[in-house]
């Protein structure tokens, strides 16, 4: 396992990576994320969402691919670009919408916002506004699983940029030393803000670093839900079998700016148009599924409509919700008597 292995889907004829039901569920989750991001982008423009927004658009197959293999009690920690991970893990979209709008009934009572979105009922331990904040935390979650004797797995999402942070390296090493069921899942979207990964990742090979820590690694095309699923099945199984941590590097496009409102002067000419045309995981998934006769276009359209309807409801609920009571300001600073 000296270098990362590149995985191609359906290299050999065997049982499909996703059966019909599994595919439809994954597709719905991917569509939900895309629609959610589109919707909040709109509401942000209208001035209905405060703070910073980092959208996950384009990266859906990566987060959904792994989260569809996890149970509610498996853990994920996320990044500043966390809405997709929360939805992929089954997070409550209406609660998320209210949170991002800073309203009562928000999933974190309006205290967290976009960069701290979380859903503890679904094992989503929180988005994180500190780049590199998550990996050490997942080591802890995996340590709990191991110590308590469960078969739970922990996944730390991170970007290409976060792969360079010292906390990430330390966490990877500790996970190997303690042989923990942790997956370091790097979504390489090419950019950390406006700095390219080809500049900032010295070796230009995030997955390749794992070998030096002594853990297996996979590289995968993160626009292909089937490819991601295939690789993640192996990684999750490796963890559940008690064989220690795994690294995954999924290459994905970032369709939007680093944050909403980013002028993106660092992008190449027509770069985004090309990415959206050639690397849209939803388009790719639809084509593949129809070709494999997993679903018809009409069935997928229907899912799209149902998701659109849900987004409409979530947005209305978010807009209609009252802002938090000022008396809530000091709630939850401590969890016991202070």
């Amino acid at each position: 396992m000296s270098t990362a292995t590149k995985q191609r889907p359906e290299a050999k004829k065997k049982a499909p990576v996703l059966d019909r039901d599994q595919f439809l569920k994954a597709y719905r989750s991917m569509r939900t994320i895309r629609s959610f991001e589109d919707k909040i982008s709109e509401e942000f423009m209208k001035g209905n969402i405060p703070g910073f927004l980092h959208l996950y658009s384009g990266q859906e197959a990566a987060g959904v691919g792994i989260c569809e293999l996890l149970n509610d009690d498996d853990y994920v920690v996320s990044t500043h670009r966390g809405h997709g991970h929360c939805i992929a893990k089954g997070g409550d979209v209406i609660g998320m919408m209210k949170e991002i709008m800073g309203k009562q009934g928000g999933i974190c009572d309006g205290k967290g916002g976009s960069m701290h979105i979380a859903d503890f009922d679904k094992g989503m331990l929180g988005a994180n506004a500190i780049v590199g904040g998550g990996p050490p935390l997942i080591v802890g979650a995996a340590l709990s699983a191991k110590t308590l004797g469960t078969t739970q797995v922990g996944v730390a999402f991170g970007g290409d940029g976060s792969s360079n942070q010292g906390t990430t390296f330390e966490a990877m090493n500790l996970a190997v030393v303690l042989k923990l069921p942790a997956i370091f899942f790097f979504e390489n979207n090419g950019y950390g803000e406006g700095t390219h990964a080809s500049y900032a990742v010295g070796s230009r090979d995030i997955a390749g670093r794992a070998a030096a820590f002594g853990m297996p690694a996979f590289k995968v095309d993160g626009t292909d839900i089937f490819a991601v699923t295939e690789v993640c099945k192996k990684a999750v199984q490796h963890c559940r079998d008690g064989k220690g941590p795994v690294t995954i590097e999924a290459s994905v496009p970032r369709f939007k700016g680093h944050f909403e409102g980013d002028p993106q002067a660092y992008r190449g000419e027509n770069e985004i148009e090309t990415l959206m045309k050639e690397q849209d995981c939803l388009v790719i998934a639809r084509k593949a599924a129809i070709k494999q006769k997993l679903a018809t276009a009409a069935e997928l359209d229907k899912i799209d409509e149902e998701v659109a309807e849900l987004m409409g409801r979530a947005t209305e609920a978010g807009l209609a919700a009252p802002v938090p009571e000022i008396s809530e300001l000091m709630d939850n600073v401590y969890s016991s008597e202070y």
């Binding site: 406006g194 700095t195 500049y199 900032a200 002067a265 660092y266 000419e269 770069e271």
Partner: peptide, 10 residues
């Protein structure tokens, strides 16, 4: 990002 755009096409 003190400059920004390192390694990028833009």
């Amino acid at each position: 990002e003190v400059s920004g755009g390192a390694g990028c096409e833009g």
